[in-house]
Amino acid sequence: MAQPAPDPQRQLKHRRSIDVAVYARPDGLWEVEARLVDTKTRDVVLAGETRRAGDPVHDMTLHLVVDTRFNILTAGAQTHAMPYPGQCNAYGDAYARLAGLNLLKGFRQAVKERLGGVQGCTHITELTQVLPTAVIQAFAGEVLDTQEGGASAADQPPFQIDRCHALRSDGEVVRQFYPRWYRPEKAEPASP
């Protein structure tokens, strides 16, 4: 599918970078470090001070420790650069409230309830939304069985089946690479 062609005279004004790194620990737990950085291509005045072009307007890190069942054991956040020092970073240990949540079971709604609005930092709270799929990617093939004929093949399909458009059980990818779990789409009965 084609995307709109970029205008040749467009000018970059703002860049948001999101980086998520997931680390395996020797104790069987996993650490997740998610970072959000916003920069401008021009000088901006924030809280009466000039922030130079390219210097971060926002630079925030969220750190989690998770187990192999996607449970968050500990969590915390730190704000390194912000528009309003002493205010933007005054959320205390709000992100410790992520502990006890499961990344795959009602996570996004629970984050909204625990940290939505003024309960947390908008940017860090938004950053949480990319964590479930990032951790799934880290776990794929190590924690999660993603191979045809893997350990769970006797009764369970590989983890990713029916979790995205390309890997739907009635689709071509599953037919070709995971034939055991292929389920052709059922034809609708003809109307009389």
Rank of each mutant, 00 (worst) to 15 (best):
A2R: 14
Q3E: 08
P4Y: 09
Q9T: 14
Q9W: 14
Q9I: 05
Q11R: 14
K13E: 10
R16P: 01
R16C: 02
S17T: 15
S17D: 11
V20G: 02
A21Y: 09
A21N: 06
A24S: 11
R25V: 02
D27K: 06
A34Q: 06
V37P: 01
V37R: 14
V37C: 11
D38M: 06
T39C: 12
T41D: 15
V44A: 12
L46P: 01
A47K: 07
A47G: 01
G48R: 12
E49R: 15
E49Q: 15
E49C: 00
T50H: 05
R52L: 15
A53L: 05
A53H: 08
P56R: 02
V57S: 04
V57T: 12
H58P: 00
M60W: 05
L62H: 12
V65L: 14
V65I: 10
V65G: 01
V66T: 08
T68Y: 02
R69M: 09
N71T: 11
T74P: 00
G76M: 12
A77S: 12
Q78W: 06
H80A: 10
G86K: 02
Q87A: 07
A90Q: 12
A90M: 04
Y91N: 05
G92Y: 12
D93G: 09
Y95G: 01
Y95I: 07
A96S: 08
R97Q: 15
N102S: 07
K105N: 14
R108V: 08
R108W: 00
A110S: 09
A110M: 07
E113Y: 03
E113T: 09
R114H: 04
L115S: 04
L115G: 10
G117Y: 07
G117R: 09
G120S: 15
C121V: 09
T125L: 06
Q129I: 03
A134K: 10
V135L: 08
I136Y: 04
F139Y: 14
A140Q: 00
G141M: 10
L144A: 11
Q147W: 09
E148G: 03
A151K: 13
A151R: 15
A154F: 08
P157F: 11
F159L: 01
F159C: 01
R163P: 08
C164I: 01
C164F: 06
C164G: 09
A166Y: 13
V173D: 07
R180T: 15
R180M: 03
R183S: 02
A187C: 02
E188N: 05
E188H: 09
P192M: 10
